[in-house]
């Protein structure tokens, strides 16, 4: 006990562990420069920023909420916000369950070789770059000779200009996302499933439960905490749909569906040079996102014992 008390005194810890800070400083410097310094730069959302004058010397906007007034009156932003939320919602609605189902199914496979084979094949797309994934998609759906276009033709359908038309954009985005990440996202559930005590299954078998009943009454309750955590994480990122793939898939034809907040921020800010407005939109997005993840976490903590913090 005496020993413990001495350990926890700050002076003892400082004299004993100060050199750990030598390890920490490079990483801290990184976070200060590339994560906290940009927060200081957020003030240009309230300024009339001119790149030649710099952050300090640019005058404050009048009124100070000028950019936000613009933000809420821009029609394009409303489209972008709607598209962002819709894309996120569809991704959550259609993309959240497949990895869980895949994990539950793989968990039932007694043949280890077959299981390993399915895993190896379905993880592979996760490592491919977005540029390549979008290219593969364009090749497969190419109206002239894409393999999927030809397949549809066998059934007397098409040809459809799937990759360029606005109405197919969402399906293509969500579908390719599921294709690319379903296998890899299943890993965490497979791990959670393997932690379920085999005794529970044995008891269920003795009670005469068939496989479906065991999945429903043993497996799913067993991985429910993991599912909750993943759901919190996913809902927290509802405002941050990946810029990279959307931007690659964007054409002037599908803009009505494919303009999302992050692509809008990029274009307004870095292409048109309207820095203050772009920062204001980005700030609005970050704040909503932050409120979202904090509230989702608070709600789940109240409803169940699982939460992020």
């Amino acid at each position: 006990m005496q020993h413990n008390r001495r350990r926890s005194s700050l002076r003892f810890r400082l004299s004993n562990s100060w050199d750990l800070y030598l390890f920490l400083i490079p990483m801290l410097a990184y976070f200060i420069i590339f994560h906290y310094a940009p927060l200081y730069g957020l003030q240009i959302a309230f300024k009339d920023f001119k790149i030649r004058k710099g952050i300090m010397d640019s005058p404050w906007a009048s009124p100070w909420y000028y950019q936000f007034e613009r933000l809420f009156s821009t029609k394009l932003l409303r489209t972008a916000l709607g598209n962002t939320l819709m894309l996120s919602f569809l991704q959550l609605a259609f993309g959240f369950l497949p990895p869980i189902i895949l994990a539950l199914m793989l968990n039932q496979v007694p043949n280890l070789k077959f299981k390993k084979f399915v895993q190896t094949v379905s993880y592979a797309p996760h490592f491919i770059s977005v540029v390549v994934v979008v290219s593969i998609m364009f090749c497969l759906f190419s109206t002239s000779n894409g393999i999927i276009t030809r397949l549809l033709k066998v059934f007397g359908l098409g040809p459809y200009a799937i990759t360029s038309q606005a109405r197919y954009f969402r399906g293509l985005y969500v579908g390719s996302d599921i294709w690319q990440n379903m296998g890899f996202s299943a890993i965490i559930y497979i791990a959670a499933l393997s932690a379920i005590s085999p005794e529970l299954h044995e008891a269920a078998v003795i009670d005469g439960a068939n496989k479906a009943q065991r999945i429903w009454h043993v497996d799913i309750p067993g991985i429910l905490p993991t599912i909750t955590i993943m759901l919190i994480l996913r809902s927290g990122s509802i405002m941050s749909v990946g810029f990279q793939k959307v931007y690659l898939m964007q054409t002037s034809l599908n803009l009505s569906r494919s303009e999302i907040i992050s692509t809008y921020v990029y274009k307004v800010g870095l292409e048109d040079g309207d820095y203050s407005f772009s920062t204001a939109v980005g700030l609005f997005n970050s704040v909503v996102n932050f409120i979202l993840i904090v509230s989702v976490n608070a709600i789940t903590r109240r409803l169940s014992e699982t939460s992020l913090w």
Binding site: A37, P38, Y40, I44, V265, S278, G282, S286
Partner: peptide, 12 residues
């Protein structure tokens, strides 16, 4: 959970 967005980072 919170970041400055691309413009402030670009300026840095």
């Amino acid at each position: 959970f919170f970041n400055g967005g691309i413009v402030p980072l670009y300026l840095i």
